[in-house]
């Protein structure tokens, strides 16, 4: 097989699966086949989608972050409480929420890098921390009535042609664009892939491994906080229980997008298609109405399994020809 096509096989697979799913849904459900539905895919999966962008970068580096859902929940209630109870301006509230998120990420990254603790354990603890803190602030959901916020909630950009891009949809596109630039066009992004591909090589090449790893967890948690703000805008309220299990969806989107869960290999475009696939499944279930929403999780789980197996087989092919040394860690 040609190297370029082999390399991009998961990406192609993702795009094809999306196309098939979308066409199937379009045939099965009246009114599914429209730009409105397509745009709504992004609006409805905005929060998960934004966290998936950050998660992609973390997974590039060979790590994982299970705390993003909790960070989303914390951010919504933290922002809502600052605005409603303490009269802080939404922009300031959002900024401090993002700063807190970044601090948590830096803390977790430090534990992972300096103390060599497994990422899943540290971020699981981070999840408890953020969720507990959210419930500490309030166990009830709080509506946000600040006029600026209400305006944002209702705002949509209409470039014409019946397109209606909500703040949430715009935020996903922005996140994807930023994520794409970071992944493809910065040293940091390429260092992440190098680190995930082979940490030993990255060290021998003299790459800043420590700073890169701590940086990506910081960036991801800040991104999750931004997703939380989008969630607050989308729902017009803060809810400490928002985003339970969201991290799994985000991880699933990344993997369905063809990014290797053990790190070192992937593409931000894949995450774009991953979001579309995830959104299509959710929307189709919504359109159907008869099927249990539980199918969403099962299908996502099966896709996850399928992609992991696909990558496993591909890697075997590669490692049989190459020395395979650095694939052994899988």
């Amino acid at each position: 097989m040609k190297t370029s096509s082999r390399r991009n096989l998961p990406l192609f697979a993702t795009a094809v699966i999306f196309a098939v799913l979308f066409v199937c849904a379009g045939v099965m459900y009246d009114g599914f086949f429209s730009t409105r539905v397509l745009v709504n895919l992004f609006t409805d999966t905005a929060v998960t989608g934004i966290t998936a962008v950050g998660m992609t970068l973390v997974i590039f580096s060979g790590g994982i972050d299970l705390s993003v859902g909790a960070v989303v929940g914390f951010t919504t209630i933290f922002t809502a409480t600052l605005i409603q109870k303490h009269g802080v301006h939404p922009v300031l509230a959002a900024a401090s929420a993002v700063a807190l998120g970044a601090a948590l990420g830096a803390f977790m990254g430090t534990l992972i890098q300096v103390f060599k603790q497994p990422p899943f354990l540290v971020t699981l603890a981070g999840m408890f921390l953020a969720r507990g803190a959210a419930w500490w602030i309030s166990t009830e959901s709080t509506e946000i009535t600040h006029p600026f916020f209400v305006h944002l909630s209702g705002y949509a950009w209409e470039p014409g042609g019946g397109l209606r891009l909500t703040v949430a949809a715009l935020a996903v596109f922005a996140a994807l664009a930023v994520g794409y630039v970071i992944a493809q066009h910065t040293r940091f992004g390429r260092n992440l892939l190098a680190l995930g591909g082979s940490e030993q090589s990255a060290l021998l090449m003299g790459l800043p491994v420590g700073a890169t790893r701590i940086g990506v967890y910081t960036l991801n948690s800040a991104g999750a906080a931004l997703a939380g703000i989008v969630a607050a805008i989308y729902s017009g309220s803060g809810n400490p229980s928002q985003g339970v299990g969201l991290e799994l969806d985000a991880i699933a989107i990344v993997v369905i997008g063809g990014t290797l869960l053990s790190g070192g290999r992937g593409h931000m475009l894949g995450t774009f298609f991953g979001i579309l696939i995830f959104g299509t499944i959710q929307s189709a279930l919504l359109f159907d109405g008869r099927l249990s929403p539980a199918w969403g999780r099962i299908v996502v789980g099966l896709l996850l399994l399928g992609f992991i197996l696909l990558q496993r087989i591909m890697l075997r092919g590669v490692s049989r020809r190459g020395d395979g040394g650095s694939f052994l860690k899988l």
Binding site: R190, N191, L193, A194, G196, G197, S198, Q200, S201, A202, L204, M205, G206, L207, L260, G264, R265, V318, G322, S326, F327
Partner: peptide, 15 residues
């Protein structure tokens, strides 16, 4: 001691 999942060009130039 290179990164197998990256391109040849990147491996030469990383860092």
């Amino acid at each position: 001691n290179l990164v197998p999942s990256l391109s040849v060009a990147e491996n030469i130039m990383l860092g």
